[in-house]
Amino acid sequence: MSYMREALLGISEYFTANKLITVCFAILLYEFFVHEKLSPFLKYVLATLLVLLFPVSAAVLLIYQPAIYDYGFLWTLMPVVAVIAYAGVRFLWDILPKAEAPGKGKYVIGAFAVLGILFLLGNRGCVQMVSMEEAALRSGYEQLGETFTEDTMLWVPRSLMQWVRRKHGDVKLVYGLDMWDAAAAAYDGDAYAPELIAAYEWMLAVEEYNVFMENSDYVWFETPEEIILNAHAAFETVGNAGGNVIVFPTITYEQLKEYFPAGYETQQVGKYTLLQRKR
């Protein structure tokens, strides 16, 4: 039943993400009703479309596909891009020349019509790009990364953690991004101890506090109690796990340092403060 539910929700999500799929329906209807015969390619497309739309068969495909992949990947079975492009070619080369309007103007209008449909149904051509905040985080990490050595075992905010193992294979982490990314966790299947999960949740609360502070004009608001009460336990857990370098945004560190345990040397690197365990 959960597969059927995932299939039903997935269809709706896919149609929202890919409105150009309507072009596939249009070409199939045109070929079927006007030509009354489908080419082997379109017969395959029609069969795949029916299998993907019918929840029972879609659920069977979800069982066939490893659970690590989303429902949306099932639509790779149907050559959506090829069908949309095929529809455009049929319109421009086979349907338009038969139109009654004289002259080459109809080809220009036809080409603009195709481009317009693609543009409007295709998310107006917007591609996903790295945001300015993300770019600032990346460059902030570049600066930080120069201070790490092969003995470093880091405990960093989540926003920085994704860069550590991508750029530095020698720097270890107390926990990885599989702590919150279920898809990444599906690869290694490792599970973390409850104390480490609690330390991760503590750092998450600090990150949210940091976002609040950076976006607020005032600094004289109360520090959340959970951050104060659990600070020592989180530091102790990380220390037991081998963590020897902890990173905080400086603006947050200055606000919270009175609640942190002693035994750490501090170093300022750009917008961040590093706490290194004293040997």
Binding site: E13, Y14, A17, N18, L20, Y69, D70, G72, F73, W75, T76, V80, V81, A82, I84, A85, Y86, G88, V89, L92, W93, V114, L115, L118, F119, L121, G122, N123, G125, C126, V127, Q128
Partner: peptide, 24 residues
């Protein structure tokens, strides 16, 4: 002519399908 038009449309459609991680 049709083949190159097809490829041009494939290239354009690929620009348009960037809304989700499972799209081409």
């Amino acid at each position: 002519g049709k083949r190159y038009t097809f490829l041009i449309l494939v290239a354009l459609v690929l620009w348009m399908l960037d809304g989700a991680t499972y799209l081409e």
